[in-house]
Simulated assay, not measured.
Amino acid sequence: MSQKQRGEESRQQVVGAASRRETKQRLLDAAVSEFESHGYTATPVSRIAATAGVTVQTLYLAWGSKRALLRAYLESTLADGSHAPGDVASRFLDQCPEHLVTQLATVFVETASRSATGWKLYREAALTDSEIAADWAELQSLRRTTYRGILGLIGETALRPGLTAETATTTAWAIASPETFELLVRQHNYSSEKYLEWLSDTLRSALIGPAISSSTLS
Rank of each mutant, 00 (worst) to 15 (best):
S33V: 08
Q25K: 13
R47G: 03
L61C: 01
E22S: 06
S37P: 02
L61V: 15
S37W: 10
L61I: 10
R6Q: 13
S2T: 10
V54C: 06
R21L: 03
G16K: 12
R6L: 15
S37L: 15
G7K: 14
R20F: 07
V14D: 07
Q13Y: 06
R11Y: 13
Y60Q: 03
K66S: 08
W63M: 04
E22W: 04
E34G: 05
S65L: 08
T55W: 05
S19G: 09
R26H: 07
V56L: 08
L28W: 07
S19D: 05
R6D: 15
Q12E: 15
L61H: 12
E9S: 05
H38Q: 02
E36H: 12
A50W: 03
A17M: 05
A17C: 12
A31M: 11
W63S: 09
V32D: 03
A52W: 00
Q25M: 08
F35T: 06
T55S: 15
G39K: 10
A52L: 04
T58E: 01
T55M: 11
G16N: 13
E9V: 02
E36A: 15
K66R: 13
I48L: 09
E34C: 13
F35C: 09
S2H: 06
S46Y: 03
Q3M: 11
S2L: 06
L61W: 11
G16C: 12
G64H: 00
A52H: 01
Q13D: 13
T58K: 02
